[in-house]
Design a binder for these strands. Structure first.
Lengths: 219, 219
DNA sequence: TCCTTTCCGTTGTAAAAACAACCGACTTGT
DNA sequence: ACAAGTCGGTTGTTTTTACAACGGAAAGGA
């Protein structure tokens, strides 16, 4: 476990906490470290979860098989990232997805009850970890609300406008770059790539915007 | 402020806390109570927010005007409900929506920093309120992930299947009722009502399911 | 340099959704 | 009992998307 403390130190959850303090806190947080081989399931859809999951090493996929066996990959978890925050409330429903190791991986599990109840012993930074977790969920929440705002538009054009306007506003200038290539943007907005590419060019021809690669300018 | 303590007692945030303890906690949580007349803005898109908002009385709409002035209503806040959890992280982006009073309303604002940092004085239930908030966000998060899972499907049929399967699984029986009428379900899934109604009947004719009003049975 | 891969625009076709409009059943209030 | 409103199904038309397939440009590696 100790060997991963430098990794933990760089995570959102332990931001602002020193390595010695992390080491001292591990038992107090009920930390468990498990390793998985490529292809193994870390969590399964339908299970209950009462731990916050932090990936120390490797790569996980969040995926779902529908009842015809079609698999869709909803997300990826890289080293240092958190998972499970949405499922740890006492009355929470079960996991909505499978989590599978796509590389050999090392995974920390922290008992959420012990994370958010400050312990009686003298963990100086326990409160900070709890707050980090709180803020992490809060920001994830905002990201979900935003994505939902884009995706709930009816047409591809509306989705693009919603996304690009927000990105322009956020970067606060006429020209801005987006962190996606075409395929990734299409996946993010849940539309077909070629249809989206089509729509983008049509909007350009109508004089609504300009673009080159992932650099855009709204007119 | 005191007159709303019975209302607060029934909220998710103060669940498990007695009225006297709530009263004692109000100042310690940095509570402010503001009233709004019907039509007034409570919060505006683009603002920063560092408070958790609890509606004590009235009704608020979460809405957004796009840059052509088209207004869309994304949600409603009823008495006792919480808002703002997605925006209170220190580095969080600004509010993505307007919040408007559609009735005369009374609104509590709680400084989020004071909610999640247990105070030095002897607020016995402060920790419980912080945990309640944490779990509330966590569950809201799960709801968003789930909705996103439905809406990101390409066709109306796929959205319906995703939603109905999950609802069947959740209620754990072949027959189940949904908490929406047709228009509300269409709004929730972000599709056209008549197109959805069409698709539902087509699925029924194909023998995939049966329904009557808001009672369904998957076959 | 040559080969392979990735990225992105383009086209055509088939499928699906949006939209508008209408109807009958049922509820609700007066 | 009547009028008004809500709800859900249906139809037909137009718009939009998905899908498959192709080609050229650019990037990267052997």
């Amino acid at each position: 476990m100790k060997e991963y403390i430098p990794v933990l130190k760089r995570t959102r959850l332990f931001s602002g906490v020193g390595e010695e303090d992390i080491g001292a806190m591990l038992s107090c947080l009920g930390a468990r470290l498990l390793t998985y081989r490529k292809g193994e399931y870390v969590l399964r859809q339908g299970e209950h979860l009462s731990d916050i999951v932090v990936l120390a090493e490797g790569c996980l996929h969040i995926q779902k098989d529908d009842y015809w066996g079609n698999r869709s990959i909803l997300g990826q978890i890289g080293a240092g990232e958190i998972f499970g925050e949405a499922y740890v409330a006492p009355e929470s429903g079960t996991l909505l997805n499978d989590v599978v190791a796509v590389e050999n991986s090392a995974v920390f599990f922290f008992d959420v009850k012990r994370v958010i109840s400050t312990c009686s012993s003298a963990c100086r930074f326990h409160t900070m970890v709890a707050q980090n977790l709180f803020y992490a969920i809060s920001e994830k929440n905002r990201g979900l609300v935003q994505k939902l705002d884009y995706i709930s538009r009816r047409t591809t054009r509306e989705k693009l406008i919603a996304y690009l306007s927000e990105e322009a506003r956020k970067q606060n200038r006429a020209g801005f770059t987006i962190p996606f290539n075409r395929q990734q943007l299409a996946d993010y907005l849940s539309v077909d790539r070629s249809a989206m590419s089509n729509e983008l060019c049509r909007m350009r021809d109508e004089g609504l915007l300009e673009f080159e690669k992932n650099r855009f300018r709204l007119l």
